Amino acid sequence: MAFEPFLQLLRGIQGKRTHNGLGGIQNSQQIAYLRHLQKEINQEELNVALQNLHVVVFDIETTGFFPEKGDSILSIGATKMRGSEMIEGETFYSLVQYGEVIPDEIQQLTGITNEQVKDAPPLAEVMIKFFQYAKDHTFVAHHASHEKSFLQYVSSKQFRTPFKHRIVDTSFLYKIVEPNLNLISLESLCQHNGIPIENRHHALGDAMMTAKLWSIYVEKVQQIGCETLNDVYNRFARL
């Protein structure tokens, strides 16, 4: 992917912080940059062998569940994988600037305080860094509808461009492997698979646990004959 010509532009963008709009910076250079990233997204990942599929497993912590009602992203954490293998050293984490008071229950749940996010990078800057990190990789998340709704909203409102990355929900895998399994939460699925519960409700901690789940179930779906995401979707549709 042709990211290098945009690195100098990105540095210039990062030096022009303002504090209006959804998360900070709003200018034509940012919008053009993100649109370029979106255009470069690989559209052939459905037919890539799962053992070779490059994914970014990620998680976000937010002030609530409804971005259209004013809830905001407080942090993003992610790790990269190829097939069932995590790529060592390829993680991403950032807090996000938030100019209002974080609800007490969210502070208690996530451990993120008002002081921590006061001087954190603005949302637009964090999102550009995150998309640059992710490149054209397929996204993976646990209960992905939450992550998808926020990223779609941010892409539309912050950058005026549609969100084009594919997000694969972990449930697509574990439900076809264990269709009678009634576990839903990240904790319960990790316990079921012998994965230690560490740094829960921390974006990077949750992303790492989700990555371990993905690793286990990628190997299991291959054992039942699913070689690609297309196979996974077809099998899931028949449940």
Rank of each mutant, 00 (worst) to 15 (best):
D136P: 01
D104M: 12
Y153N: 10
A49Y: 12
L123P: 03
E219C: 03
H36S: 03
L123Q: 02
Q116M: 15
G77T: 09
F139P: 03
V140G: 01
K164E: 15
I60T: 15
L183H: 08
F139D: 06
T79G: 09
F65T: 01
K157S: 08
V117E: 09
T91H: 06
N52C: 10
K164F: 10
I73W: 08
L229W: 01
G111A: 08
E219H: 07
V177L: 10
F65Y: 05
E105N: 14
Y174C: 08
E187G: 01
K118Y: 11
V56P: 06
P196Q: 06
I76Q: 00
D206W: 07
E187D: 15
N230Y: 11
N27M: 09
G205H: 04
N42I: 08
F3V: 02
D169T: 06
E227M: 05
H202P: 06
C190A: 15
C190S: 14
I128S: 07
Q30W: 14
V101L: 14
V56M: 03
Q26I: 15
I176G: 08
H19E: 11
E105S: 10
L50K: 02
D59M: 11
D169P: 08
M208L: 15
A211D: 05
K118T: 03
A211T: 02
Q107M: 14
F236R: 12
S188A: 09
A120S: 08
N234M: 10
N114P: 13
R235H: 05
T228Q: 02
S171H: 14
V154C: 04
S72K: 11
Q30H: 12
D169E: 07
L46P: 00
L123K: 03
G205F: 06
A120K: 04
Q38Y: 13
K148D: 10
N52D: 15
S94A: 10
I197D: 13
K164G: 02
T138M: 10
S156E: 14
N182G: 11
F6Y: 13
H54Y: 09
V218K: 02
H146A: 07
S72C: 09
I184A: 04
Q191I: 12
I13N: 00
T161Q: 05
Q223R: 13
K69A: 07
S155W: 05
Q107R: 13
G15Q: 11
